[in-house]
Amino acid sequence: MKIGELAKRTGMAASAIRFYESRGLLKVASRQSNGYRDYPEEAVTILTIISDAQQAGFSLDEIKQLLPADVSSWLHDELITILQRKVADIEILQTRLAQNRALIQHLIQLIESKPEDMDCKLNAARVMASLGLNQEQ
Rank of each mutant, 00 (worst) to 15 (best):
S15F: 08
S15P: 07
G24Q: 07
L25V: 03
K27H: 14
V28E: 15
V28T: 12
V28K: 14
V28I: 12
A29L: 08
A29P: 09
S30H: 12
Q32M: 11
N34S: 00
N34M: 04
N34G: 02
G35H: 04
P40N: 02
A43C: 07
V44I: 15
V44A: 04
T45H: 10
I46R: 07
I46K: 01
I46V: 15
T48C: 09
T48V: 08
T48F: 05
I49G: 03
D52G: 11
A56H: 09
S59Q: 06
K64N: 14
L66R: 02
L67I: 11
P68N: 03
A69W: 04
S73H: 14
W74G: 05
W74H: 10
W74V: 15
L75G: 02
H76G: 02
H76C: 10
L79A: 10
L83F: 06
L83Q: 03
D89G: 00
I90M: 08
L93R: 15
Q99A: 00
N100R: 12
R101A: 07
R101N: 08
L103P: 01
L103G: 04
L107Y: 07
I108M: 11
Q109L: 13
L110F: 09
E112A: 12
S113L: 03
D117W: 06
D117M: 05
D117K: 06
D119W: 01
K121R: 08
L122F: 09
N123I: 05
N123A: 13
A124F: 10
A125Q: 11
R126A: 07
V127T: 05
V127W: 04
V127G: 05
M128T: 01
A129Y: 03
A129L: 08
S130G: 05
G132R: 00
L133K: 04
N134V: 07
N134A: 09
